[in-house]
Simulated scan of single mutants.
Amino acid sequence: MTDMQTEYRDGNDFIVEVIRTDRRKTADIRVEDGAVSIIVPRHIATEKIDQLLISKRKWIKEKILLQRDLSPTSHKEFLSGESFPYLGRNYRLKVEKGNFCPVKLVEGRLLVTVPLGSEQPHMIRNALVRWYKKQAQQKMHEKVKRFAPIVGVEPKGVEIKFFKSRWGSCTVNGKLEFNWMILMAPNRMVDYVVKHELCHLIHHDHSPEFWKEVARVMPDYQECREWLRVNGMKLRV
């Protein structure tokens, strides 16, 4: 698998993540949960990327606004001092003005640097979404690798997605999909979601046999299931 290089472009009211790769010969623009990315051939000129973004600006803005309307309700204002949970611990947001930089966890604070303007709160949210997704990519792969032998299964892959009303999914071809927002829950709840989906590789339903399998690998699963039922709607960016 070829390494991908990441950079960012200011799209004027939105930030675009540029992903250069040897595996593409054409450009592909994506808008996912309000965050814009463009996947391009490794050696394409930056000027060409900017031209593509200008030509697609109307379409990108329409997608961003549509997804903003569909995203879960959040009462955050995205101001310095607000707290955001990560694996059950709260971290304070620190906003700095400047050219966009990916979120960094520095001295217990989530540091985000974005341009000043009317779209700043949305840029901050998108920066946080990108950060949670990147953490989810790493953490969920690690947990699947650790727990799959305990469950006794071999998943076909792991993907991070946004689900409106569930934490994970197991596809018919054996791939596990996880909602990136689960990273806002305590670590034990994340473990439960991973084990839950791994058990679906044995029983692709919620039969008594499935729950017996979950109980075998996680005897206290009911506490985790109840915690998510009660607190899950609070896990929002």
Score class of each variant (00 low, 15 high):
3 D>C: 00
5 Q>T: 15
7 E>F: 01
7 E>A: 07
9 R>Q: 14
13 D>L: 03
14 F>R: 11
15 I>C: 11
20 R>W: 10
26 T>F: 03
30 R>Y: 05
37 S>P: 15
37 S>N: 13
37 S>K: 13
38 I>L: 07
42 R>A: 09
45 A>Y: 06
46 T>G: 08
49 I>T: 14
54 I>W: 02
59 W>P: 03
60 I>S: 01
63 K>Q: 14
63 K>T: 02
67 Q>K: 10
69 D>A: 10
70 L>T: 12
70 L>G: 01
73 T>M: 04
77 E>T: 00
77 E>V: 03
83 S>T: 11
83 S>Y: 00
85 P>G: 02
88 G>S: 11
88 G>D: 11
89 R>K: 14
91 Y>V: 04
94 K>A: 13
96 E>P: 09
99 N>A: 11
100 F>Q: 09
104 K>G: 00
104 K>Q: 08
105 L>V: 12
106 V>N: 12
113 T>N: 12
117 G>Q: 07
122 H>S: 14
123 M>L: 15
124 I>A: 03
128 L>F: 11
130 R>G: 05
133 K>M: 11
135 Q>G: 04
138 Q>L: 12
139 K>Q: 12
141 H>P: 07
147 F>Y: 14
147 F>D: 04
149 P>D: 04
151 V>E: 09
155 P>A: 05
155 P>G: 03
155 P>D: 04
158 V>F: 08
159 E>T: 12
159 E>C: 04
159 E>M: 10
159 E>R: 15
162 F>Q: 07
163 F>A: 01
164 K>Y: 08
165 S>D: 12
167 W>C: 02
168 G>T: 12
170 C>R: 01
173 N>R: 04
173 N>S: 04
174 G>E: 10
176 L>Y: 05
178 F>W: 05
182 I>G: 13
184 M>Y: 02
184 M>T: 05
185 A>W: 09
185 A>I: 08
185 A>E: 08
190 V>M: 07
191 D>K: 06
196 H>T: 01
198 L>N: 05
199 C>V: 07
206 H>L: 10
206 H>W: 09
215 A>W: 06
216 R>E: 10
218 M>L: 15
219 P>T: 01
222 Q>D: 03
226 E>Y: 09
230 V>W: 00
237 V>T: 02
